[in-house]
Design a protein around this nucleic acid. Sequence first.
DNA 1: GAAATTTGACCGAC
DNA 2: GTCGGTCAAATTTC
Length: 301
Amino acid sequence: MDVCSGEKRALASELAQMQAMVRELGVRMDQQDLPVAARELCGELASCVDRSIRIAGSFGWAAPDSPGSGGDGSPRCDGAHHPVGGGGGGNAQSKRRKGTPCVRRQVRVTTVHDMAPLDDGLSWRKYGQKDILGAKYPRAYFRCTHRHSQGCAATKHVQRDGGDPLLYDVVYHGAHTCSQAAHPGADQLRQQLQRPGEGHDDAGRELQSSPAPATETEGALQAGLEPMTPYSFAPAPGYSADFGGSFPALLSPTGLEWQLRSGHAATGLGAGMDYESQLEEFFTNAADPFQWDYQDLYATN
DNA sequence: GAAATTTGACCGAC
DNA sequence: GTCGGTCAAATTTC
């Protein structure tokens, strides 16, 4: 397949070039006061390019120096394409409890038009945050709010991808045994995830899934693992209203969910230093229930 | 006051 | 000894 590999390389190169151009376009659009619709369109384009690169990557078509494909130093950003506990990242899962089902999912923040589908009624409580060796961003640890009241053992770990500010690794451990597990919204999302190739969100966007076999994932999901939920990062004071125009977030009064006034900044555009640092700061301090793109998921154990 | 997050400390696996 | 995961006291928010 040497002939094909050359073409694949060319394709990967083209995709990487497209991505760079889109980012540059985003930066320029950010500098000029363009209509929101144009920005959102550009954002969609950026997301599309990112997905294309990621799909290509899943076939081993590594894009040369692709900024969105985990090339900026984080050793964990390729995690979605490797089994947990396998090669990449390795020790990140080394302490996983034996016998505890685990689902790992890589999700991308894209647009924020409709938050409703994400409100699956599951509530999480953050119980820790840890800097991970070699990772660019800290990992946040959540457990079910009803852990003590109902003995629910479900937990999840959330870590931002070092290569793509809008990409997150979410690892679920254990199944919800609390009453919220029977929430209708949770069931709906679970069904979506059980059929990753057919999933669509309410905005009509396709929910991505890895081309890799999802047998284990589906098995784990059917065993009672919960789908994506809004995070419960702390709505740190000062982050609720202004992100310097680059990341216009608006926290809800409850502090448990938030929404954006514009989807532009959440589309992978304008990866300038200010934007990056604000995103980093934001991730550390706030929630991130945008509209999710289900990049990949798989299960182990 | 209740419920949440933050963060340093502790524990177990490697 | 190192590192990831969890605990729990302190702090913050509503």
